[in-house]
Each structure stands twice: as structure tokens, then as C-alpha cells.
Simulated scan of single mutants.
Amino acid sequence: MTGDIRALLARHLPDYRVRSVNRLGHGLDNFVYEVNDELLVRRSRVADPQANRQEVARLAAVRELSPLPVPEVVFADDETGTIAYRKLPGTPLNQHHSADLDPSRLAEPLGAFLSAIHGAIPATMRDLAPLDVYPAPTLLRDAELDYRDIERHVPEPQRPLVERFLREPPPAEPQSLRFCHNDLGAEHVLVDADTGTITGIIDWTDAAITDPAHDFALIYRDLGPDLLDLTLAHYEFPVTSEDRARIRFYARCALIEDLAYGLSTGPRHYADAALAHLPWTFTT
């Protein structure tokens, strides 16, 4: 596959000298490669030219909206589902020890970022991001099916927390939808190791017009309730008790999904993080 990446680079950047191509990892939909420690090349498992063009246009729009850096496209190859970006500085937040991070350095920029992104007029983003409306009862049913497959891996004292959640009724559906990152897990927030400041927000593949609570849910799941509250304090839109209920609900469904993924076809670190964060996600 690295040979294919080299061929794409030669086609789109003929004067660019390629010294190294390293595969960084993969997700459900994409493989990611690092080139010369300065470019990131994301290639879809299944090429979708229209989706590729949409993502390029979406990133251009997001760069105008976001107060935090987002990837800059260097080239796109629609037929192979490939997009090359300039590498942003910093490392993913999930690779940092939480005790070494100052929550205030994260919460204020995250609150400002989400205010800007969620503040986009949805109608202006409809051509750039799909509508993502997945009913809460369906999410809860999916979460239970996932959990039954992996519940033996959950420490026995914590199983009642999950069982109680699965018995509870799902929250009411949101009253309004906004443009969202829609996958704002800690692995997609880059941070400078020396200063603890956010240096970028990456991976906009799943961006959608959806419930803003989805973005806060992954902050809650990955970074805890205290950082969630601090982030919400810097968020310019009102957040109701119903919104908070959906944040908790989505976080719990997402944690179960990550646990099942990490224990089956995905990288093990997804499962390890899910188990580490299960107590705060299901008790607060």
C-alpha cells in the first residue's frame, strides 16, 4: 500500500521529494500514512469520489469557522478516496497523562471552538455535511446488543452501572440540530506536550448536521465530567438539563461501542480507554 501512496504523491506533487512513507494506523473507514514527518495521507477503504470532494469543501469551510487549527488540504485524489494534509503540530490528547494537563488550557479553547462550529447556520452547511439523525431508542438497542457480546470483559463490580443504564428509558430527541465535528474524541484533539495547549482538531470525516450533544458526549467520555463542565462554561449557547441528559446518554452508548470495537476488530487501546473511563461515564 505504501507503493500506492508514493505513486499518488508522484502524480499530484511531482517536484516533492519523498524520503519516507509510514503507515500510522487505521480506523473503520480509512488508513492513514505519514510522509516525511510533514504530510498525512488518508486513504479510504472504499473510494467514494463524491464524499471525497465533499470533505475537501467541508475542510475549507471549517478553516473559516474554527478558532483552532484544522487540517489544510495539499491535494485530493477522488478516484482513490485519498486526501493529503499538512501535518499539524502536537500529539493526540489521549496520548497525554491527564495529570500533566491544565484543564483550563483545554476547556476555554474547546468551548470557543464548539461555539464557533455549532454557530454555523445549518442551511449553509447542508451541502458540506450530511444530516445524521439516529433515534435514541435505536442507539440504546444497539448499545445493549454490543454490551451482551462483551459484558464478560467488564469488571464485575461495574456491570450493574451498565445494566442500570440499559434499563433506563432513552432521553427525548433534540429540539434543534447544528453542524458538528461528530467524532470529537481525545484522539482527534492535538495538544502541545510542553505547554498543554490545543494545537489542532483533526479527522472531520464524520462531521454532520446533528445534535450538538454528540460533541460534548465524547469530551465527557474521554476527559471526564469536570472538564465537560468547564468547557460548557465557555460555550455561548444555553445548555438545558435535557441537553445534559443526552450528553450522558450518547457518552455511554459511545463507550460501549468503543469497548466492543476494541475487543473485536479494532485496536486494543479503544477497549483499554473505555474500561478506564467507564466509572465516571456511568456514575455522574
Rank of each mutant, 00 (worst) to 15 (best):
M1R: 10
T2D: 13
D4Y: 01
I5K: 05
A7L: 02
L8W: 06
H12I: 08
H12E: 11
H12F: 09
L13C: 10
L13V: 03
L13Y: 02
P14G: 08
Y16Q: 05
R19P: 00
S20D: 13
V21T: 10
N22P: 00
G27V: 04
F31R: 08
L39R: 10
L40W: 14
R43N: 02
R43T: 15
S44T: 10
V46L: 13
D48T: 06
D48M: 03
P49V: 07
P49M: 13
A51R: 15
Q54N: 02
E55F: 04
V56M: 04
R58H: 08
R58C: 12
R63N: 03
R63E: 10
E64T: 15
S66C: 13
V73S: 08
D77N: 12
E79G: 07
E79S: 14
G81Y: 06
T82L: 05
I83L: 06
I83C: 00
A84G: 07
P89N: 11
P89T: 14
G90W: 10
G90S: 09
T91I: 12
T91E: 15
P92S: 11
L93K: 04
H96N: 07
S98D: 10
S98M: 11
A99T: 10
D100I: 01
P103V: 01
R105T: 13
L106C: 06
G111V: 13
G111Y: 12
A112V: 15
F113S: 04
L114G: 03
L114R: 01
L114E: 02
G119E: 01
M125N: 01
R126I: 11
L131P: 00
L131D: 05
V133I: 15
A136N: 11
D142W: 09
D142V: 14
L145I: 00
D146V: 01
D149T: 03
D149F: 06
E151N: 02
V154R: 12
P157A: 07
Q158Y: 14
P160W: 07
L161R: 07
V162F: 05
F165I: 13
P169L: 05
Q175V: 12
Q175D: 14
H181D: 09
N182V: 04
N182L: 07
D183E: 13
L190V: 11
V191H: 09
A193L: 08
A193Q: 11
D194N: 09
G196D: 12
I202H: 04
T205Y: 13
I209E: 11
T210C: 11
H214Q: 08
F216K: 03
I219A: 05
L223T: 04
L223I: 07
D226N: 10
L227K: 04
L228H: 06
L228C: 04
D229R: 15
L230D: 09
T231H: 05
A233H: 12
Y235P: 11
F237N: 10
T240V: 00
R244L: 08
R246K: 02
I247N: 08
F249H: 02
R252D: 07
R252P: 11
E257W: 13
E257G: 08
D258P: 00
D258Y: 06
L259S: 06
Y261H: 13
A274E: 00
L275G: 09
A276G: 05
H277V: 00
L278C: 11
W280Y: 10
T283A: 12
T283E: 08
